[in-house]
Design a protein around this nucleic acid. Structure first.
Lengths: 236, 236
DNA sequence: GAACTCTTGTAAACACCGTTCACTGAAACC
DNA sequence: GGTTTCAGTGAACGGTGTTTACAAGAGTTC
């Protein structure tokens, strides 16, 4: 069944354990607790042995980021698959799932979303977001926004994003026309991402200007407004 | 002129140098470079000497956060004082100033705004934001939003925020009535903070889903929408 | 099966980190 | 002038990332 040699299997297993230990340390004791020595201690080996698997502490942290993104993506997809309503419902579901995930995984969220990252940034999460956004846009057949809704200075960037979206979706076999994915919608996707990220980050980092005792309805309220703005009707 | 003894002056001077060195390290080499030993090296003293000024490395970082907030507040106030137009213009000016400051000080921004902070959070920045928001709201005499605009589940939190705002402004001698600072406006202030923070953080952390080549007009465009939503007329 | 290579781990070392503690020397006070 | 206060030192402890030389087992080749 498995084509891998014994050595390859052992190596893969060790690597799995490294990631798992790193993740546990991050979750339980924060970013600064994810040290090579602590991970090694957890596995019953010595720190330099980890250099057989990762070039540096930094590389291991990058891998950790990717793992987190992949897990988050899986969680979002799972929540999305439970939602069988129309597109507006799906968008709402995935936004709520994102918030839920972030609140349940604050350390992971902080590591992935709030570090002045490597400019590359071609991480797992990007493609997940593009995936979801692209699919949701593609299946929303009502084109309520025309191109001339957005200022012309933004066209260049939005066209680029449009291409990125089209590519991302086509990689999964879905093809959408430019008439459906028009610039007005693209712009609203960006704006929605701004509001979604803003709200979730503020909540996770406790940076609202006052103590919010009941943040969930506030999030839902923002979501309603966002969906209205993006062109979905408000009926739930 | 100065009532302080020689010793007090020297101490104050050293403390100033500590903060300055810590700040320089943060700016030039990132959060992780702000170590006690590096600071001490910069001052030509030894690391344990710093414990005469701060209880721990963590306490020093907290002080650094406060310093950053104070500096940012000063920068925002300065930019605000240059703007002599009506309230809409002032809001626009201070939002732009916030973005400009964040982009010019990414390490400081990350430290202050994107760490799962101490729940206390009664930092300098809070009062600055409340200051500005309160004043701007108070001077916007056109009450375009009524209380029934916002869902009732939010009332409890918004009333609390209303009180916080009223207190913050009254501490500076300005008193405003509840009729002006109604819940609809409060809600829009919160929503504006969500969008402002979201956009700036995404830009600083490079977390837009595509490479934005021209982010300024995108920010301005969001600002226009935000000001329209909040009830300011769109004439510049 | 012996000789060989490749891989995975170790132990020791280096330079750095936060923190504690016993101490020194000078300033401030009475 | 004697005493107290206090900023600063040096040594030490246990922690960190990383490099190096080395050992020992797994896999391969003859």
């Amino acid at each position: 069944m498995t084509e891998a040699t014994r050595r390859e299997r052992l190596r893969a297993e060790t690597e799995r354990e490294i990631r798992q230990a790193a993740r546990a340390l991050l979750v339980e004791r924060g970013r600064d607790a994810v040290t090579l020595r602590a991970i090694a201690r957890e596995l019953g080996i010595t720190a330099p042995a980890l250099y057989r698997y990762y070039d540096s502490h930094d590389a291991l942290l990058r891998q950790l980021c990717d793992d987190i993104c992949a897990d988050m993506a899986a969680a979002l997809y799972a929540d999305l698959s439970l939602e069988t309503g129309h597109v507006g419902c799906k968008v709402r579901a995935v936004c709520r799932a994102f918030r839920r995930w972030a609140l349940a995984h604050p350390q992971e969220f902080a590591l992935v979303f709030a570090s002045p990252r490597d400019p590359l940034g071609a991480d797992q999460f990007g493609s997940v977001f593009l995936q979801l956004a692209g699919q949701l846009i593609a299946s929303n057949l009502v084109a309520t926004h025309a191109d001339d809704d957005v200022p012309e200075v933004l066209h260049e960037d939005l066209v680029r994003f449009q291409q990125v979206l089209v590519d991302a979706v086509s990689e999964h076999g879905v093809s959408i026309g430019e008439d459906i994915l028009n610039l007005g919608k693209i712009y609203h996707v960006v704006q929605s991402w701004v509001r979604l990220y803003g709200h979730v980050a503020l909540e996770v980092f406790g940076r609202f200007p006052f103590a919010v005792s009941n943040p969930e309805p506030m999030f839902d309220s923002m979501l309603d407004q966002m969906l209205t703005d993006i062109g979905f009707s408000d009926d739930s």
